[in-house]
Design a protein around this nucleic acid. Structure first.
Lengths: 144, 144
DNA sequence: TTACATGCAAACTATTTGCATAAGC
DNA sequence: GCTTATGCAAATAGTTTGCATGTAA
């Protein structure tokens, strides 16, 4: 958390951009939150703290953090853009429960390597990827 | 193409729904088009043919086709919902060029099996998945 | 002091919906 | 003729933008 905030300040400086009151508050909130969150979630959290930042500034700051590679934007489809921390979190993919919406992370090196191999065999230079497996999570399976 | 249209008619009937002039025209266009297309692309194609169907009907018919499992809706992120045929097309994943936007399909059984294994090892019942690998395609690599 | 950031409200994009009218079966 | 589908225009949701004003450095 402190490290992320510090890193944000560094990257802002190196870009000649400013650390405003709003950015500071937003970034602190972003990095004290865990898991995936949306712009609207974040705005709600800020308001709950009695802090009012404009919706536009929240969106602009999320874009800035993504651009600085401190946040990753993950598209969970149709108007569902979520964000997650980058620093200290290795790359992972997602299992998404179609019943309860729960998102579970996983990572697997064999899978990563295989994807790279496949890409190369198609003369394609892989840079990043997104894998989402949809199905039924353990809790929901048991409920049936 | 004829098979898809026929299948659509069958599924409509079994649902007690009607084959309207608009649906017929839209479905013919959908299945004579290859590759990925958006609702707006489709509407444009229809208009180019001098045929005017309302935007609402195009959206409603695409949803119907998806519901009938004749089309698959693939989310290419942020306001980029594309569709592709299902019948006669085995499951595949996508390589997406970050330079030119070209989309190349691939499929790999080892990859599929591995995903299923991983899911099971996490007590998750996989139903479907979406894998997109972003990078630079062969043409764009050569251009550099 | 001056360039950059904010807040507001309006614009935008893709999509959905309510309702009167049209048309399959 | 009854019920489903269409077309329109308005609504929606999430996000972006123009511009006057505020503020960090």
């Amino acid at each position: 958390m402190q490290r992320d905030v510090q890193e944000f300040i560094n990257r802002l400086k190196s870009r000649g951009q400013r650390l405003t009151r709003q950015r500071k508050k937003i970034v602190e909130k972003v990095f004290s939150t865990h898991g995936h969150f949306s712009a609207e979630d974040l705005l709600g959290e800020l308001r709950k703290d009695g802090y009012r930042a404009s919706r536009a500034t929240v969106y602009r700051t999320l874009a800035l953090l993504t651009d600085c590679n401190l946040l990753e934007a993950i598209d969970f489809g149709q108007n569902c853009q979520l964000y997650e921390h980058v620093l200290g979190h290795r790359h992972h993919d997602h299992l998404i429960c179609m019943k309860c919406g729960r998102v579970v992370e996983f990572s697997n090196d064999v899978l990563e390597n295989l994807q790279n191999e496949i890409s190369r065999s198609m003369d394609f230079k892989p840079i990043s990827h997104s894998l989402k497996i949809y199905g039924i999570c353990s809790k929901c399976k048991r409920k049936r």
